[in-house]
Protein backbone atom coordinates (compact mmCIF):
# COMPACT_ATOMS: atom_id res chain seq x y z
CA UNK A 1 0.00 0.00 0.00
CA UNK A 2 1.48 3.35 -0.97
CA UNK A 3 2.09 6.00 1.61
CA UNK A 4 1.47 9.66 0.99
CA UNK A 5 3.68 12.60 1.78
CA UNK A 6 2.54 12.57 5.41
CA UNK A 7 3.72 9.01 5.75
CA UNK A 8 0.16 7.91 6.37
CA UNK A 9 -1.37 5.04 4.52
CA UNK A 10 -4.79 5.78 2.99
CA UNK A 11 -6.64 4.09 5.84
CA UNK A 12 -4.91 6.15 8.50
CA UNK A 13 -5.47 9.35 6.56
CA UNK A 14 -9.13 8.57 6.02
CA UNK A 15 -9.55 7.89 9.74
CA UNK A 16 -8.16 11.32 10.55
CA UNK A 17 -10.28 13.04 7.89
CA UNK A 18 -13.46 11.31 9.00
CA UNK A 19 -13.05 12.68 12.52
CA UNK A 20 -14.00 16.11 11.12
CA UNK A 21 -17.49 15.03 10.10
CA UNK A 22 -20.12 16.97 12.02
CA UNK A 23 -17.73 19.74 12.99
CA UNK A 24 -18.31 23.39 12.16
CA UNK A 25 -17.04 24.54 8.78
CA UNK A 26 -18.03 28.18 9.17
CA UNK A 27 -19.74 30.19 11.84
CA UNK A 28 -20.78 33.77 12.25
CA UNK A 29 -20.16 34.48 8.60
CA UNK A 30 -21.52 37.70 7.16
CA UNK A 31 -21.86 38.67 3.53
CA UNK A 32 -19.25 41.23 2.56
CA UNK A 33 -21.94 43.34 0.89
CA UNK A 34 -25.65 43.53 1.43
CA UNK A 35 -27.71 42.14 -1.42
CA UNK A 36 -27.47 44.90 -3.99
CA UNK A 37 -28.57 45.80 -7.49
CA UNK A 38 -25.12 46.24 -9.08
CA UNK A 39 -23.99 42.74 -8.13
CA UNK A 40 -27.31 41.34 -9.31
CA UNK A 41 -26.96 43.17 -12.59
CA UNK A 42 -23.38 41.98 -13.13
CA UNK A 43 -24.52 38.43 -12.45
CA UNK A 44 -27.41 38.71 -14.92
CA UNK A 45 -25.09 40.17 -17.56
CA UNK A 46 -22.64 37.31 -17.15
CA UNK A 47 -25.39 34.68 -17.27
CA UNK A 48 -27.25 36.34 -20.13
CA UNK A 49 -30.28 36.35 -17.84
CA UNK A 50 -32.84 38.96 -18.91
CA UNK A 51 -35.55 37.91 -16.45
CA UNK A 52 -37.43 41.14 -15.58
CA UNK A 53 -37.97 39.88 -12.03
CA UNK A 54 -34.35 40.93 -11.41
CA UNK A 55 -32.94 43.08 -9.83
CA UNK A 56 -36.03 43.71 -7.65
CA UNK A 57 -35.15 40.29 -6.26
CA UNK A 58 -31.82 38.51 -6.62
CA UNK A 59 -31.59 35.42 -8.81
CA UNK A 60 -31.98 32.60 -6.29
CA UNK A 61 -28.90 30.85 -7.72
CA UNK A 62 -26.81 33.80 -6.45
CA UNK A 63 -27.27 32.39 -2.93
CA UNK A 64 -23.65 31.33 -2.56
CA UNK A 65 -22.28 34.47 -4.21
CA UNK A 66 -23.51 36.56 -1.26
CA UNK A 67 -21.38 34.45 1.08
CA UNK A 68 -18.14 34.56 -0.92
CA UNK A 69 -15.09 36.30 0.48
CA UNK A 70 -14.02 37.59 -2.93
CA UNK A 71 -10.46 38.51 -3.76
CA UNK A 72 -9.74 40.01 -0.34
CA UNK A 73 -11.45 37.27 1.65
CA UNK A 74 -13.57 37.74 4.73
CA UNK A 75 -12.04 40.29 7.08
CA UNK A 76 -9.66 38.62 9.52
CA UNK A 77 -10.36 35.27 7.89
CA UNK A 78 -13.69 35.30 9.71
CA UNK A 79 -16.34 32.69 9.07
CA UNK A 80 -14.20 29.66 8.19
CA UNK A 81 -13.64 27.48 11.21
CA UNK A 82 -10.33 26.18 12.50
CA UNK A 83 -11.64 22.65 12.04
CA UNK A 84 -12.28 23.22 8.36
CA UNK A 85 -8.88 24.85 7.87
CA UNK A 86 -7.27 21.87 9.60
CA UNK A 87 -9.15 19.43 7.40
CA UNK A 88 -8.05 21.23 4.25
CA UNK A 89 -4.47 21.49 5.53
CA UNK A 90 -4.44 17.76 6.26
CA UNK A 91 -5.50 17.12 2.69
CA UNK A 92 -2.92 19.59 1.34
CA UNK A 93 -0.20 17.85 3.35
CA UNK A 94 -1.33 14.51 1.97
CA UNK A 95 -0.66 15.88 -1.52
CA UNK A 96 -4.30 16.73 -2.29
CA UNK A 97 -3.46 20.29 -3.15
CA UNK A 98 -5.95 20.85 -5.97
CA UNK A 99 -9.62 21.51 -5.47
CA UNK A 100 -12.63 21.32 -7.72
CA UNK A 101 -16.32 21.72 -6.93
CA UNK A 102 -18.47 18.78 -7.98
CA UNK A 103 -21.95 19.21 -6.50
CA UNK A 104 -24.16 22.07 -5.42
CA UNK A 105 -27.61 21.57 -3.96
CA UNK A 106 -29.54 24.67 -2.99
CA UNK A 107 -32.96 25.21 -1.54
CA UNK A 108 -34.52 28.65 -1.60
CA UNK A 109 -37.02 29.51 1.12
CA UNK A 110 -37.59 33.14 0.24
CA UNK A 111 -36.13 35.51 -2.34
CA UNK A 112 -33.33 37.84 -1.36
CA UNK A 113 -33.91 41.52 -2.10
CA UNK A 114 -31.56 44.47 -2.33
CA UNK A 115 -30.81 45.61 1.20
CA UNK A 116 -30.95 42.14 2.76
CA UNK A 117 -27.89 41.44 4.90
CA UNK A 118 -26.84 37.83 4.67
CA UNK A 119 -25.29 35.76 7.45
CA UNK A 120 -24.27 32.13 7.27
CA UNK A 121 -22.85 29.14 9.07
CA UNK A 122 -21.84 25.73 7.78
CA UNK A 123 -21.05 22.24 8.99
CA UNK A 124 -18.74 19.56 7.56
CA UNK A 125 -21.28 16.96 6.57
CA UNK A 126 -19.07 14.18 5.23
CA UNK A 127 -15.63 13.24 3.96
CA UNK A 128 -15.42 10.41 1.45
CA UNK A 129 -12.91 7.58 1.40
CA UNK A 130 -10.09 7.96 -1.09
CA UNK A 131 -11.44 8.07 -4.65
CA UNK A 132 -9.72 8.09 -7.98
CA UNK A 133 -11.35 10.22 -10.65
CA UNK A 134 -10.28 11.40 -14.06
CA UNK A 135 -8.72 14.46 -12.43
CA UNK A 136 -6.71 12.58 -9.87
CA UNK A 137 -6.97 10.85 -6.52
CA UNK A 138 -8.38 12.49 -3.42
CA UNK A 139 -11.34 12.92 -1.11
CA UNK A 140 -14.77 14.50 -1.53
CA UNK A 141 -15.68 16.94 1.23
CA UNK A 142 -19.33 17.92 1.65
CA UNK A 143 -20.43 20.96 3.63
CA UNK A 144 -23.92 22.22 4.36
CA UNK A 145 -24.52 25.91 4.82
CA UNK A 146 -27.51 27.76 6.25
CA UNK A 147 -27.98 31.22 4.82
CA UNK A 148 -29.98 33.73 6.84
CA UNK A 149 -31.07 37.30 6.34
CA UNK A 150 -32.18 40.15 8.57
CA UNK A 151 -32.87 38.95 12.08
CA UNK A 152 -31.79 35.40 11.39
CA UNK A 153 -34.59 34.20 9.12
CA UNK A 154 -33.44 31.15 7.17
CA UNK A 155 -33.60 32.09 3.48
CA UNK A 156 -31.75 29.20 1.90
CA UNK A 157 -29.62 26.13 2.36
CA UNK A 158 -26.58 25.28 0.35
CA UNK A 159 -24.92 21.87 0.22
CA UNK A 160 -21.58 21.96 -1.51
CA UNK A 161 -19.19 19.15 -2.42
CA UNK A 162 -15.60 19.62 -3.41
CA UNK A 163 -12.92 17.16 -4.46
CA UNK A 164 -9.52 17.81 -2.90
CA UNK A 165 -7.11 15.82 -5.00
CA UNK A 166 -3.62 15.11 -6.21
CA UNK A 167 -3.68 15.99 -9.89
CA UNK A 168 -3.13 13.17 -12.33
CA UNK A 169 -0.27 14.03 -14.66
CA UNK A 170 -1.46 16.39 -17.38
CA UNK A 171 -2.24 14.49 -20.52
CA UNK A 172 -4.00 14.84 -23.82
CA UNK A 173 -7.70 15.06 -23.34
CA UNK A 174 -10.03 12.90 -25.32
CA UNK A 175 -12.72 14.48 -27.39
CA UNK A 176 -12.96 17.57 -29.56
CA UNK A 177 -11.28 20.77 -28.53
CA UNK A 178 -12.30 23.17 -31.24
CA UNK A 179 -10.48 26.27 -30.06
CA UNK A 180 -7.49 24.79 -28.33
CA UNK A 181 -4.31 26.57 -29.24
CA UNK A 182 -1.42 24.38 -30.32
CA UNK A 183 0.93 23.65 -27.45
CA UNK A 184 4.33 25.25 -27.68
CA UNK A 185 7.01 22.71 -28.53
CA UNK A 186 8.26 20.95 -25.43
CA UNK A 187 11.91 20.64 -24.72
CA UNK A 188 13.14 17.23 -25.82
CA UNK A 189 13.29 14.81 -22.93
CA UNK A 190 16.50 12.84 -23.16
CA UNK A 191 15.19 9.67 -21.55
CA UNK A 192 12.40 9.22 -24.07
CA UNK A 193 12.79 8.00 -27.58
CA UNK A 194 11.88 10.63 -30.15
CA UNK A 195 8.35 10.37 -31.46
CA UNK A 196 8.05 9.09 -35.01
CA UNK A 197 6.19 12.26 -36.01
CA UNK A 198 6.28 15.34 -33.87
CA UNK A 199 2.70 16.18 -34.81
CA UNK A 200 1.22 12.97 -33.51
CA UNK A 201 -0.22 13.42 -30.01
CA UNK A 202 1.50 11.23 -27.51
CA UNK A 203 -0.84 8.47 -26.43
CA UNK A 204 -0.71 7.62 -22.75
CA UNK A 205 0.95 4.26 -22.19
CA UNK A 206 -0.39 1.32 -20.30
CA UNK A 207 0.84 0.87 -16.76
CA UNK A 208 4.17 -0.94 -16.50
CA UNK A 209 4.24 -4.29 -14.73
CA UNK A 210 6.01 -4.37 -11.39
CA UNK A 211 8.73 -6.96 -11.82
CA UNK A 212 10.40 -8.32 -8.71
CA UNK A 213 12.34 -11.40 -7.56
CA UNK A 214 9.15 -13.35 -7.02
CA UNK A 215 7.73 -12.88 -10.51
CA UNK A 216 10.76 -12.15 -12.70
CA UNK A 217 10.62 -15.68 -14.12
CA UNK A 218 7.11 -15.05 -15.41
CA UNK A 219 8.17 -11.93 -17.35
CA UNK A 220 11.25 -13.70 -18.71
CA UNK A 221 8.84 -16.31 -20.06
CA UNK A 222 6.68 -13.61 -21.65
CA UNK A 223 9.76 -12.22 -23.38
CA UNK A 224 10.25 -15.69 -24.95
CA UNK A 225 6.52 -15.93 -25.75
CA UNK A 226 5.97 -18.58 -23.12
CA UNK A 227 3.20 -18.38 -20.53
CA UNK A 228 4.80 -19.90 -17.45
CA UNK A 229 2.84 -21.20 -14.48
CA UNK A 230 4.28 -22.33 -11.16
CA UNK A 231 3.75 -25.82 -9.75
CA UNK A 232 4.41 -26.90 -6.17
CA UNK A 233 7.07 -29.61 -6.00
CA UNK A 234 5.52 -31.09 -2.87
CA UNK A 235 1.78 -31.19 -3.53
CA UNK A 236 1.90 -30.52 -7.33
CA UNK A 237 -0.77 -27.78 -7.11
CA UNK A 238 -0.38 -25.30 -9.99
CA UNK A 239 -0.55 -21.64 -9.07
CA UNK A 240 -0.86 -18.25 -10.70
CA UNK A 241 0.03 -15.40 -10.29
CA UNK A 242 3.58 -16.13 -9.27
CA UNK A 243 4.21 -16.35 -5.53
CA UNK A 244 7.10 -17.62 -3.43
CA UNK A 245 5.02 -20.20 -1.52
CA UNK A 246 2.30 -22.71 -2.25
CA UNK A 247 -1.17 -21.58 -1.24
CA UNK A 248 -2.24 -25.20 -0.70
CA UNK A 249 0.58 -26.67 1.42
CA UNK A 250 2.92 -23.76 2.16
CA UNK A 251 5.93 -25.33 0.50
CA UNK A 252 8.44 -22.97 -1.02
CA UNK A 253 9.72 -25.55 -3.50
CA UNK A 254 8.37 -25.01 -6.97
CA UNK A 255 9.02 -25.38 -10.67
CA UNK A 256 7.74 -23.42 -13.66
CA UNK A 257 6.09 -25.04 -16.64
CA UNK A 258 4.67 -23.71 -19.86
CA UNK A 259 0.90 -23.44 -20.22
CA UNK A 260 -0.67 -24.94 -23.31
CA UNK A 261 -2.39 -21.60 -24.03
CA UNK A 262 -5.88 -23.05 -24.15
CA UNK A 263 -8.53 -21.66 -21.84
CA UNK A 264 -12.10 -20.51 -21.38
CA UNK A 265 -13.67 -17.30 -20.12
CA UNK A 266 -14.52 -18.01 -16.49
CA UNK A 267 -16.01 -14.56 -15.89
CA UNK A 268 -15.74 -11.03 -17.24
CA UNK A 269 -16.74 -7.42 -16.71
CA UNK A 270 -17.18 -4.62 -19.23
CA UNK A 271 -15.45 -1.40 -18.20
CA UNK A 272 -17.36 1.77 -19.01
CA UNK A 273 -16.21 4.17 -16.33
CA UNK A 274 -13.91 5.56 -15.11
CA UNK A 275 -11.74 5.84 -18.20
CA UNK A 276 -8.03 5.24 -17.57
CA UNK A 277 -5.27 6.63 -19.74
CA UNK A 278 -4.33 4.25 -22.57
CA UNK A 279 -7.60 2.35 -22.37
CA UNK A 280 -10.63 3.13 -24.52
CA UNK A 281 -13.87 2.18 -22.81
CA UNK A 282 -15.96 0.21 -23.19
CA UNK A 283 -13.77 -2.88 -23.13
CA UNK A 284 -14.05 -6.35 -21.64
CA UNK A 285 -11.77 -7.60 -18.89
CA UNK A 286 -11.92 -11.36 -18.57
CA UNK A 287 -10.93 -13.88 -15.95
CA UNK A 288 -9.61 -16.72 -18.09
CA UNK A 289 -9.42 -20.24 -16.72
CA UNK A 290 -6.47 -22.03 -18.29
CA UNK A 291 -6.61 -25.70 -19.22
CA UNK A 292 -4.07 -26.23 -16.40
CA UNK A 293 -6.64 -25.04 -13.86
CA UNK A 294 -5.30 -21.61 -12.86
CA UNK A 295 -7.04 -18.36 -13.73
CA UNK A 296 -5.63 -15.08 -15.00
CA UNK A 297 -7.03 -11.66 -15.80
CA UNK A 298 -6.63 -10.66 -19.43
CA UNK A 299 -7.79 -8.73 -22.42
CA UNK A 300 -9.90 -10.69 -24.86
CA UNK A 301 -8.80 -9.91 -28.38
CA UNK A 302 -10.57 -10.57 -31.64
CA UNK A 303 -14.05 -10.27 -30.11
CA UNK A 304 -16.05 -7.07 -29.53
CA UNK A 305 -16.49 -6.25 -25.83
CA UNK A 306 -20.21 -7.05 -25.97
CA UNK A 307 -19.69 -10.46 -27.53
CA UNK A 308 -17.50 -11.87 -24.77
CA UNK A 309 -19.34 -14.67 -22.96
CA UNK A 310 -18.69 -16.94 -20.01
CA UNK A 311 -17.49 -20.33 -21.25
CA UNK A 312 -16.13 -18.91 -24.50
CA UNK A 313 -13.00 -20.82 -25.58
CA UNK A 314 -9.91 -18.63 -25.87
CA UNK A 315 -6.33 -19.14 -27.00
CA UNK A 316 -3.13 -17.48 -25.83
CA UNK A 317 -1.38 -14.91 -27.95
CA UNK A 318 1.12 -12.19 -27.25
CA UNK A 319 0.20 -8.57 -27.80
CA UNK A 320 2.83 -5.92 -28.36
CA UNK A 321 1.41 -2.91 -26.52
CA UNK A 322 4.24 -0.47 -27.21
CA UNK A 323 7.95 -0.50 -27.94
CA UNK A 324 8.73 -1.74 -24.44
CA UNK A 325 5.83 -3.88 -23.39
CA UNK A 326 4.46 -7.18 -24.58
CA UNK A 327 1.62 -8.92 -22.77
CA UNK A 328 0.03 -12.35 -22.86
CA UNK A 329 -3.63 -11.95 -23.87
CA UNK A 330 -6.33 -14.31 -25.06
CA UNK A 331 -8.02 -14.39 -28.42
CA UNK A 332 -11.67 -15.25 -28.28
CA UNK A 333 -13.30 -17.73 -30.60
CA UNK A 334 -16.47 -15.95 -31.66
CA UNK A 335 -19.55 -18.13 -31.69
Amino acid sequence: MTRDELGLDPEELYGRLKAYEGRTAASGGAGRDPVNEPMIRHWCEAMGDTNPAYPAVAPPTMLQAWTMGGLAGHPGGAARSEAYDELLALLDDAGCTSVVATDCEQEYLRPLRPGDRVTFDAVIESVSPRKTTKLGTGHFVTTRMNVRAGDGELVGTHRFRILKYTPARPRERAGPQPMRKPEPMRKPEPTRRPEPTAARPRRPRRPRPVVNRDNAGFWEGVARHQLLIQRCLDCVTPRFPWLPGCGACGSQRWEAFEASGAGTVFSYVVMHHPPFPAFDPPYAVALVELAEGVRMVSDITGVPYDKVRIGMPVALEFLRVDEELELPVFRGAQA
Binding site: P60, T61, V100, A101, T102, D103, C104, E105, Q106, E107, Y108
Partner: peptide
Protein backbone atom coordinates in the same frame (compact mmCIF):
# COMPACT_ATOMS: atom_id res chain seq x y z
CA UNK B 1 -36.97 28.52 -8.20
CA UNK B 2 -37.33 26.36 -5.09
CA UNK B 3 -34.42 23.96 -5.41
CA UNK B 4 -31.50 23.62 -7.77
CA UNK B 5 -29.28 20.55 -7.32
CA UNK B 6 -26.49 20.02 -9.81
CA UNK B 7 -23.57 17.68 -10.31
CA UNK B 8 -20.66 18.55 -12.53
Amino acid sequence: LRKVAIRL
